[in-house]
């Protein structure tokens, strides 16, 4: 950790509860995470692990009634303490979100041009003509050839892949310093996914943009990010450099996820599914949330929740981390499940 400069984005013991039938339930238990300026962090986890809410807390886009503990700091400023004007400034030009489903997240009744230029015209006071010129340039940059025609069209006239490019252009148009990409390729088909990821990658490289990349695809995150944080049931259980994911991961859950991936190189190796079902954050007991599914769990794991601690290159929240080299086999080896 570099104590000399503030990270662009820092989650400090983030804790989020939501009201469910009168009582508050935890949806995020504890997230400690930093994204340096220009860096890319992949936040990986199953559905319901709290990764999307964690990303939304950066822009304070949480559902009504949500309570936030700990803090989220953007460039040193506490997001939870911001007044309305600073929050609008953060949303308008600090951090921009790329949502998963562009079909639902772009107003269906307004033109692509309106969608792209609205922020520039209303929050920055730019002239419509200048904003439209900027939008045209950006559409070209994200690989949309006939930009002037597209600007006049409505979302229903564009394919999903094109719409997601429009969403990326809309995120870039405010010239933010941080992209929050919430599963930007999940709703797209496989070939379009690769193209859209390439567009995001290129835009980041040109602008030196930082990114918090939310995904359930560990391999994709490792390919596009510098650092990987794995979430399980509302907590970050492990964070480590993306390049060291395969060699240095210590948490049994991370190991199990890696083992559950099909590997094209090794031929007919059976996939190893993780036993049991994923827990939601509110179901987690006093101990480690992964303990019920963990092959290495002991008594301590069911009573005490582990805190993140330094393990080699990363940080791991585990009482009995599988230190690199100590154990070659991933957990779950004994519980091989054949798929098909």
């Amino acid at each position: 950790m570099n104590h000399m400069e503030t990270p662009l984005l820092a989650f400090e013991g983030l804790h989020i509860t939501l009201p469910v039938r009168g009582e508050h339930r935890a949806v995020v238990h504890r997230v400690d995470l930093t994204v340096p300026a220009g860096g890319a962090v992949g936040l990986v986890g199953e559905s319901g692990s709290g990764k999307s809410l964690t990303a939304r807390s950066v822009l304070r886009l949480l559902p009504p009634g949500a309570r936030v503990g700990g803090d989220v700091r953007f460039d040193g400023a506490s997001v939870t303490a911001m007044d309305a004007a600073s929050l609008r400034a953060l949303r308008g030009s600090g951090a921009a979100m790329i949502f998963q489903d562009p079909r639902a997240h772009i107003n269906p009744l307004r033109t692509i041009g309106d969608f792209l230029t609205e922020g520039l015209v209303t929050t920055r006071g730019q002239r419509q003509g200048a904003a439209t010129a900027r939008a045209t340039d950006l559409l070209r940059e994200v690989g949309i050839a006939d930009a002037p025609r597209r600007l006049r069209q409505r979302p229903a006239e564009l394919s999903g892949g094109l719409l997601q490019r429009v969403m990326i252009a809309a995120a870039l148009i405010g010239e933010p310093r941080l992209l929050l990409a919430d599963e930007p390729t999940t709703a797209l088909d496989v070939t379009t996914q690769a193209e859209v990821m390439a567009v995001i990658d290129e835009a980041r490289e040109q602008r030196g943009l930082a990114m918090l990349f939310i995904t359930h695809d560990l391999a994709l995150a490792a390919a596009v990010c510098d650092s990987i944080a794995v979430m399980y049931a509302g907590s970050v259980v492990e964070q480590l450099p993306a390049a060291r994911l395969h060699d240095a991961s210590c948490h049994p859950y991370t190991r199990a996820l890696l083992a559950a991936r099909p590997d094209p190189g090794t031929g007919a190796r059976p996939l190893r599914a993780i036993e049991g079902r994923p827990l939601s954050a509110s179901e987690a007991g006093p101990g480690c949330a992964f303990a019920p599914r963990c092959p290495a769990a002991r008594d301590l794991c069911t009573t005490d929740r582990p805190l993140p601690e330094r393990t080699g290159d990363g940080r791991t929240a585990c009482h009995f981390p599988l230190l690199a080299g100590a154990d070659d086999a991933a957990p779950g080896t004994e519980r091989t499940v054949r798929h098909g």
């Binding site: 949303r91 030009s93 949502f99 929050t123």
Partner: peptide, 14 residues
């Protein structure tokens, strides 16, 4: 509560 309104909010529009 629609998603596109969430998008508009996320962009700092009044």
């Amino acid at each position: 509560v629609s998603e596109h309104v969430q998008t508009a909010r996320s962009r700092g529009i009044k």
